[in-house]
């Protein structure tokens, strides 16, 4: 936990121009994107609509009946995968000190991220639009 100053702020910006700086910036950029995308997603799904009406049929006929919503939700998927898995990387590097354990855990995490990327991309790209409502 040496590179955190928990008293006042988040992770200090690493010096230099290496991978750590890139990750530091990626966390902040994806964080701002998620502030808009994730919070608006929550508002849409829980306040404007209600979970009780969001059947698979409803997704095909209403929620994902326009390209713009699929693109928006795919952007949300990308931002959340980058932010959450790089965030977990920070947690793992803080908690796990053994080099071999780190490799095993980080490989599993990146594999999981890749699987979620594939599953999410497949469903958002291929779920068939059902006619019925084309508002």
């Amino acid at each position: 936990m040496a590179d955190i100053s928990p008293i006042t702020r988040g992770r200090r910006k690493p010096t230099g121009s290496g991978r750590e700086v890139t990750i530091w910036y990626l966390m902040r950029i994806s964080g701002v994107a998620l502030f808009v995308l994730a919070l608006s997603h929550y508002i849409i799904q829980h306040f404007i609509f209600d979970p009780s009406e969001q059947t698979a049929e409803w997704i095909a006929t209403h929620r994902w009946n326009q390209l713009i919503w699929r693109v928006t939700d795919w952007a949300l998927l990308m931002a959340v995968l980058v932010h959450s898995f790089l965030g977990m990387r920070t947690v793992v590097l803080d908690m796990v000190k053994g080099p071999r354990a780190r490799i095993v855990i980080m490989s599993s995490l990146y594999l999981l991220a890749a699987i979620l990327f594939v599953l999410g991309t497949i469903v958002v790209a291929t779920l068939e639009v059902k006619p019925g409502v084309t508002e």
């Binding site: 698979a56 997704i59 095909a60 998927l77 959340v80 995968l81 959450s84 999981l112 979620l116 599953l119 999410g120 497949i122 469903v123 291929t126 779920l127």
Partner: peptide, 14 residues
């Protein structure tokens, strides 16, 4: 939750 949520939404198609 994101792990669960990507899997559940995949099921909407699968």
């Amino acid at each position: 939750f994101v792990i669960l949520h990507v899997i559940d939404i995949y099921l909407a198609g699968g």
